[in-house]
Write a protein that binds this DNA or RNA. Structure first.
Lengths: 121, 121
DNA sequence: TCGAACCCTCACACAGGTGTGAAGGTCCAC
DNA sequence: GTGGACCTTCACACCTGTGTGAGGGTTCGA
């Protein structure tokens, strides 16, 4: 598919799709006319990238962890250098931290909202 | 306490503490000599701010939700304008989304790490 | 064959969170 | 009273993710 369709199906601007490609997060082939040609599975991938970005991870890290999240993952075992594993562990821990933090604060907000709602009536 | 101590106790640069103050996330009084003077409870607050920032929330939003997270929160009921509540709900939902996403991806990373570890030996 | 709707690259711009450093005041210990 | 460790404000600069638009090519239907 071409960039416009991918953009529409992922809710992402063309600009950003090109940016992600520049950052090595997605790949594309080129048609004879120079247009980018995307594989269908990139829809999921782009959505995932956006989720990770929104979660606060920089493209640099996302690029590193994406291959490990692909299926089938057996193919990527060779990539598993010690540094890579260390990065993954670090990032996994940071994500756990973030989850804890977000959950706690979200619950606090929920509590507050509940309290406000049962206050007025 | 002065800015240096707060910086050290929160692992934050002085620059950023001033920035947070400029953004209205923290307050300080001034000593006679013009130095900022911080209340001890700001240690927790700054840590919380950093967690929220790291989780991807902008200072603008953090400023809005922080008062609701304070105890005792009853004081802040008057702040609850409809727009405020809407913002909170929206932000709470986004946080839930983020948590889901982060958890899913973190679990995938964990799985990958486990797989790699049980692969070589 | 024209126009619309695509696509390309390139580049400037912006906001947000940070770093860094200049130029200067204060405080304290030697 | 001098030096070092603090503090102040101000400003420039960076990176990252985005928007926007210029200038130009391709494809396709009317």
């Amino acid at each position: 598919m071409r960039i416009g369709e991918l953009a529409e199906r992922t809710g992402t601007s063309r600009r950003l799709l090109r940016y992600y490609e520049e950052r090595g997060l997605v790949v594309s082939t080129r048609s004879a006319n120079g247009y980018r040609d995307y594989d269908a599975n990139l829809v999921d991938r782009v959505v995932q990238i956006r989720g990770l970005l929104d979660a606060g991870l920089p493209t640099r890290i996302i690029k590193q962890i994406l291959p490990c999240l692909d299926k089938p993952r057996a193919i990527h075992f060779p990539d598993a250098t010690p540094e890579m594993l260390a990065t993954l562990e670090r990032e996994r821990d940071r994500m756990t931290e973030r989850v804890r933090f977000l959950t706690r604060n979200r619950d606090a907000i929920s509590e507050y909202l509940d309290a406000v709602r049962t206050y007025v009536p």
